[in-house]
Amino acid sequence: MNLQAIRAIYLFEMARTFRTIWQSIVSPVISTSLYFIVFGAAIGSRIETVEGVSYGAFIVPGLIMLTVLQQSVTNAAFGIYFPKFVGTIYEVLSAPVTVIEIVIGYVGAAATKALMIGLIIFATAHLFVDLPIVHPVWMIAFLVMTTFSFAMLGFILGIWAKNFEQLNLVPMLVITPLVFLGGSFYSITMLPPVWQTITLFNPVVYLISGFRWSFFGTADVPVAASLAAIALFAGLCLLAIWAIFRTGWRLRS
């Protein structure tokens, strides 16, 4: 393992993050607060409880996931797209580093930032609602697994993207709908049976369900299924990244 390289990439990326830390934090905090006001206060006054949890609290895991997923994907995508865009990627490609080291460095930094923002939103949520956490260790575990696996997805996106439009398009067009339709603001048991079945093909359902279970002890799908889904997703991403570096797709001429 070239630990120095992992460290160098990670610290370099984190330094970039901290240069723009206020932008990175302010916008998710504001948008989360808005969600609380609109969904929690307005709708929550009509829906008293979902599965025995107050609606305001019920949406917290989904809200955190929404931002964390977007952040993981965009951070990682930007982290690798930018050097590709300005050409400094030549250094990474000519360095004595393996794919795994590159991924740990870039994806680790992107995931760290997303995780920090997730925790900040979590803290913000406390200002609005009472939040019990049944399984705190699992809550952190789900958060970490999610940030890492979606940061890998973002990493692939960053390598694939040929311009900034494409870079923005995927999180907008794919991630956001998947999260909204993945039970962020409702329990999928509230849906008609047909839609329940369709929803099960949405990977985000498993994340949110598992994450919500760590808060309230109730889940839409079995926790084991959530874990399996994340593992499968992370494995596929890793495989894709390995193949990309193996063939040099969009990286080497």
């Binding site: 120095q4 390289a5 610290l11 240069r19 930018f82 300005v86 250094e91 360095a95 004595p96």
Partner: peptide, 18 residues
């Protein structure tokens, strides 16, 4: 990388090469 400081990018390369 335009927004980086000179010394940091030089240090970065050294680390990258292990």
């Amino acid at each position: 990388e335009g927004f980086e400081k000179v010394i940091n990018t030089v240090r970065f390369t050294r680390g990258l090469f292990g």
